[in-house]
Computed example of a mutant assay.
Amino acid sequence: MAIGAMIHTFTVQLADMDRGVYDDLTLRVARHPSETDAYMVTRTLAYCLEYAEGITFGAGISSTEEPAVLVRDLTGKITVWIEVGAPDSDRLHYGSKLADRIAVYTHRDPAKVIAPWAGKRIHNAEAIRVFSFGPGFVDAAAAVLERRNTMTLTVTEQQLYLDLNGTALSSAVHEHGIV
């Protein structure tokens, strides 16, 4: 018998001063059995850092048609394609042809994530942005995960301040180009 996804709930107070986004969110995040806690934390952070009208989690970790997080406009068109982890160049190429903007959030070494894309055909590669966090930040957040989580997320001048279940963490949000 296959084990199903585990649901984690996040009650989030979001204050992204860099973008002028302030909101209270309640997120139900399904963690697939093959998904690590670090990946799920990164996916949740990507959702919050990209929060906009029309944002939603993708169909799942095994979906080839959707990214981990996406934003659709009122017509249903994908406007932002947000990958998490270390997507391959084919996914980036596909996503960048569908969406106006593409971003990758990774909990891994960004240089190692970007290196395999060198010389590969990726539509509009110069516009793709890769975001990473300081060493150990995502792992520290994953270590205090619970099934029900309370999270305060503040972003100012590309510095992220996170209080997750009473544990205060901070990290710069590093932005990298791929070309």
Rank of each mutant, 00 (worst) to 15 (best):
H176A: 06
H8E: 05
V113R: 10
E175S: 04
A68R: 07
V173L: 04
V12N: 11
P116Y: 05
A2K: 06
T150C: 07
D90L: 09
E146Y: 00
E83N: 08
T9P: 01
Q159C: 10
T152Q: 15
G119L: 14
D23S: 13
I3F: 04
A86L: 13
M1Y: 05
I3Y: 03
T11D: 15
V69W: 02
Y22A: 06
T44D: 10
K112H: 07
T156P: 04
G85L: 07
D73N: 15
R28V: 09
L74M: 15
A59V: 08
I61E: 14
A46D: 02
S171V: 11
F137W: 10
T75I: 05
I7R: 10
A168R: 05
E35T: 02
T26I: 12
H123V: 15
A142K: 11
M40E: 03
S171M: 07
T79N: 07
A86R: 15
F10C: 04
G134T: 02
D90H: 14
A142V: 09
H176Y: 13
K97V: 11
V104N: 10
A168L: 05
L45M: 15
A172H: 07
D18W: 02
F131I: 02
H174T: 02
G60K: 04
A143Y: 12
T106G: 14
E66A: 13
V80Y: 09
S96A: 04
W117F: 14
R31P: 02
I122E: 05
N149Y: 01
